[in-house]
Design a protein around this nucleic acid. Structure first.
Length: 497
RNA sequence: GGCGCUAUCGUCUAGGGGACUAGGACGGGGCCCUCUCAAGGCCCAAACACGGGUUCGAAUCCCGUUAGCGCUACCA
């Protein structure tokens, strides 16, 4: 199901380099968001392009907010998009023991220390600092506690957290997206790594897991930039080599603000249900923050894999434009091989009651050509379904505007349709060329322009002002159904003079 | 407030000192094609945030200003 990139390797031959290992690490506190999907996509593209692995880690250490439904939704979203992962899914919550071990190890090496300050005390000092318009930073008072007092309080059962002691100096790294980013360590706070209840804080859990999973490239949103120096310090304290970091820009809504429910559909599932093609979604998302250079826009997954390199990555936040997504989907809709499109459309067609398995099997060729006919005018799968009614036996509605514009003179419209019906009723061949000759001939003999026949006919056949070319409609409907639609229309016109 | 990141048409972007009268795409406007609508083709409007440098030459390099965003928890 998922393509291999073995044939697509281009530059710089990673054969000497170890395979890169990346991970997508969502926290299961909601559905898969388009921002998360894009992060997953870039991780995936990188892994595929450089012949590496992308693992999936569910960051469920926040018990209060994590849900199983959310975990499921994230899997579903990823699967729908076709973003597969290697190896078993890692659940962060299952690694509690290692997280604790790592925290204790740092305590032993002196990289971290116990802190007995309570959340209330901290909160108090924080608000005092705020009132005095000073920035709050933990003052390390517990780091200065005499060893005997620490031992006594621990023995006495006083609750404590473990804090990381930020060393002197500065911390910097070469970001794949940005250039060198550096932070003076004095701006970093002695952050908590293990809560008083023994559970790890985010930065520790991430680093501990990334080390354990052998992650070599960390690609994530640039909202993590300020976590990075802390994490690098943690890697060093744990005696591990930090990975390469790549910080991707955020996605904003049309108002330039962070994407939220106010901006309409932001969950990947929303787009799935709106009849988007996963390939189009991915293509659109990829272009939000990455460019292959030049004018390249519409791409297949395989093309994206070969074209993807980190130097095409953007530094600036991008705005999510649903209009362009729609256009992109239209492009994919008409370019995707029919065989690939059919399974994505058929479930919706079944739901609408137009087809069942029997029809898809017995009239497969006809069905495929119908999809081919309808996709031209569609931007979503739902558009295809919406247009499909007239080609199936059920009755059709006559659109009020179509009637008003094209059946203005009821009785003459009926006459024209009558004539057309007669002309089509014979046993002549039923193909576009023949039908065109017949209808144009009829127009000539009636002394009217062809359009004067085509438009009323279109309404009779489809009930609409808009449809594929009229001969294609006739062919798709077949003689029997087309003739029936004509009789129905004539009857309707005679009944509503 | 502190720290950090960012800055080309309304939006996504190309651009890595001269090839720039700044290119493409979405969206908008117009025309063509035409049985309608799409698709397609052609054309138009539309941008280098500002100020200083560096240089013979700056959208491109440096500094500052401004603006936007992010982080600043015993959240992730």
């Amino acid at each position: 199901m998922f393509c291999s990139t073995a044939d697509n390797m281009t530059e710089t031959t990673p054969s000497l380099r170890p395979r890169p290992r990346l991970r997508f690490a969502p926290s299961p506190t909601g559905s898969l968001h388009v921002g998360g999907a894009r992060t997953a996509l870039f991780n995936w593209l990188y892994a595929r392009h450089y012949d590496g692995d992308m693992l999936l880690r569910v960051e469920d250490t926040d018990k209060a907010r994590s849900t199983e439904e959310s975990t499921r939704a994230i899997f579903e979203g990823l699967l729908w998009l076709g973003l597969s992962w290697n190896e078993e899914v890692v659940y962060q919550g299952a690694n509690l023991e290692r997280h604790q071990r790592d925290a204790l190890a740092m305590l032993e090496t002196g990289a971290a220390y116990r802190c007995f300050c309570t959340p209330e005390e901290l909160e108090q000092r924080r608000s005092e600092a705020q009132a005095a318009r000073e920035s709050f930073k933990y003052d390390r008072r517990c780091d200065r506690l005499p060893a005997e007092e620490v031992a006594r309080r621990v023995a006495g059962g006083d609750p404590y957290v473990i804090r990381f002691r930020i060393p002197e100096g500065s911390t910097e790294w070469d970001d794949m997206v940005h250039e060198t980013i550096s932070f003076p360590n004095k701006d970093l706070d002695d952050f908590v790594i293990l809560r008083s209840n023994g559970t790890p804080i985010y930065n520790l859990a991430v680093v501990s897991d990334d080390i354990a999973m052998g992650i070599t490239v960390v690609m994530r949103g640039d909202d993590h930039i300020s976590n990075t120096p802390k994490q690098i310090l943690l890697y060093r304290a744990l005696g591990a080599e930090p990975p390469t970091f790549a910080h991707l820009p955020m996605i904003h809504g049309m108002d330039g603000k962070k994407l939220s429910k106010r901006h309409g559909a932001t969950a990947v599932g929303d787009y799935q249900h709106q009849g988007l093609l996963p390939g189009a979604m991915l293509n659109f998302l990829a272009l939000l923050g990455w460019s292959p250079g030049g004018d390249r826009e519409v791409m297949t997954m395989d093309e994206m894999i070969t074209l993807f390199t980190p130097d095409g990555l953007q530094r600036k936040a991008a705005i999510f434009d649903p209009k362009k997504l729609e256009w992109m989907n239209g492009q994919h809709l008409s370019r995707v091989p029919l065989a690939e499109l059919e399974p994505r459309v058929t479930p919706a067609m079944m739901e609408a009651g137009y087809v069942d398995e029997a029809i898809v099997d017995s009239r497969g060729e006809w069905y495929m050509s119908l999809l081919d006919l309808l996709r031209v005018r569609a931007r979503t799968i739902d558009d295809i379904v919406r247009q499909a009614g007239p080609y199936f036996p059920g009755t059709i509605e006559y659109d009020a505007e179509a009637v008003a514009n094209n059946w203005k003179e009821r009785s003459s419209a009926a006459d024209i349709l009558e004539a057309a019906k007669e002309a089509l009723a014979g046993d002549s061949a039923w193909d576009a060329g023949t039908l065109e000759a017949i209808l144009r001939g009829l127009a000539e003999s009636l002394g009217i322009s062809a359009g004067k026949i085509f438009q009323p006919l279109r309404v009779a056949l489809t009930g609409l002002t808009v449809s594929p070319g009229i001969f294609e409609v006739l062919v798709a409907q077949g003689r029997e159904l087309a003739l029936r639609r004509l009789s129905d229309a004539i009857g309707w016109l005679r009944r509503n003079p």
